[in-house]
Amino acid sequence: MDTLLKLDDFTMHYRTKAGWVQAVDGVTLSLARGQALGLVGESGCGKTSVAMSIMKLLPYNSKVVRGRILFEDRDIYSMSDEEVRRMRWKGIAMIFQAAMNSLNPVYRVGNQIVEAIVTHEPETSEREARERVASLFELVGIPKERVDHYPHEYSGGMKQRAVIAMALACNPKLVIADEPTTALDVIVQDKILREIDQIRRKINMSMIYISHDVSVIAEVSDVVAVMYAGKLVEMGPADNVFKKPRHPYTCGLMMAYPSILGDKHELATIPGEPPNLLDPPAGCRFHPRCDRASVECREADPVWRAVAEGHYTACHNPVEITGTWSEAVKALNGGERLGASSNA
């Protein structure tokens, strides 16, 4: 498969007064052209840091400790500023977490998109760029006459759509959507997600969805990566990961979300708190909250290994689900430990 983006043991820390925060630790993943990756995890687990690392938009107090990020086989962190500038939006575009605030309040929305187009495609005239913006607005479902309005004249949903239109403006090869719909109500959220997904398939664009919401990720991703405390804990085809999760944390995360179509189950929370990344626990970072933790988990960092075709996890005692996921959940609600029968 044609690899577009590759993270290779990427490790990035933030310097703070209290010490080094190990925000991203040894993340290895790759994304093919046209593929959609879902990155899921609790707040503060390093999802956005990964996104910012890929855009090379890290704050001044960050430091890349190890590893590389390759975009089209070129190391982003050895590119010059000018090369990075050219790569942004043309190569990798982003839909920001705070879409509401990512529009300049004193410029007309259309102009902000035109600006991006003419910056990256000097051969495009301003009029052509304007036409493209009009068709982009049509694509995301904003009336064309809104092009010359200011952001404060838009509703929340429209701003969100405008930001999506902006991300698509230069036909990027990869779009990173960082919580693209968190600020919207569930109905609009669902609609916008489907729209993005359709557009992605139409123009064969790669996508990284970042969300804490498992249901959002499940709907639109081909591949799912689960992050916990700065590390990847599980990654694999969406079907595999959500039907037969192997890492206890993935199970916990899925239990914490209701399933609308599936059977009812009680929502379970994962006990404890995410670790302090200034001084993460030794061994597996999840072990203090894991009911499957053994001595090994406290001492040795679990290795990243394949458990099925394209399905990886980093766990000493992976969960083994034999039946369907909902049966497993039922069993759990019945008091039985998840996957307890399978593992010693």
């Binding site: 938009l57 500038r85 939006w89 043309k90 575009a93 982003m94 920001f96 910056t119």
Partner: peptide, 16 residues
């Protein structure tokens, strides 16, 4: 502000 970060992400030249 987020829109300054967004502007940078858009690959606009630093002075702009």
């Amino acid at each position: 502000e987020d829109y300054v970060m967004a502007a940078r992400a858009k690959g606009l030249p630093d002075t702009i």
